[in-house]
Amino acid sequence: MTLSVYLSGEIHTDWREQITAGAEGLDVVFSGPVTDHAASDDCGVAILGAEDTKFWHDHKGAMVNAIRTRKGIADADVVVVRFGEQYKQWNAAFDAGYAAALGKSLIVLQRPEHDHALKEVDAAALAVARDPVQVVEILRYVLTGALPG
């Protein structure tokens, strides 16, 4: 069985690389958003033309990025959403809600200090992991039935 896994959320640390490296040898195909922050912010105006206000600049970028995000989440078997420490990731919360609405298997990756703020997101998830290694172990277990160890 091949799992398609969409890696959503925080883009400022190497958590995606940790998961993909840890899952080497497993039958997993990973996808995710554009993680080049500047490209993600500016894609709308770079493609569709400049805007006079930051609101419309961001709006165009969000719409263009949503094409990739919607497709990636819709095609995924499992969606992993990472909430980082540095920024409020409203887009990650939206992605988690979208995945839950589509009935996708959702794994949330967050630190304990976010538990209260993310309690509704966590309630929709099938697992709340604290580090990328736990995500890899979940994927390994789902694919092979093997426990860590």
Rank of each mutant, 00 (worst) to 15 (best):
S8I: 08
S8Y: 02
H12P: 00
T13V: 12
D14M: 08
W15P: 01
W15R: 05
R16A: 03
Q18T: 09
T20R: 15
T20W: 10
G22A: 10
A23Y: 00
A23Q: 03
A23P: 00
G25Y: 09
L26R: 12
L26A: 07
D27Y: 06
V28C: 07
F30E: 04
S31P: 00
T35E: 03
T35C: 02
T35L: 08
A39E: 08
A39I: 10
V45P: 02
V45E: 12
I47K: 02
L48W: 09
A50Q: 11
A50E: 14
A50D: 13
E51V: 01
D52F: 04
T53K: 04
T53G: 00
F55C: 06
F55R: 09
D58L: 10
H59D: 12
V64K: 02
N65D: 04
I73A: 06
A74V: 00
A76K: 01
V78Y: 06
V79M: 05
V80D: 03
R82G: 04
R82I: 02
G84K: 07
E85S: 02
Q89H: 15
W90F: 14
N91E: 13
N91T: 10
D95Q: 14
D95C: 01
Y98W: 10
Y98A: 01
A101E: 11
L102C: 00
S105A: 04
L106I: 05
R111I: 03
E113F: 14
E113W: 13
A117M: 12
A117C: 02
A124W: 12
A125N: 05
A129T: 15
D131F: 14
V133M: 13
V133H: 13
Q134N: 09
Q134F: 10
V135S: 03
V136T: 11
I138R: 14
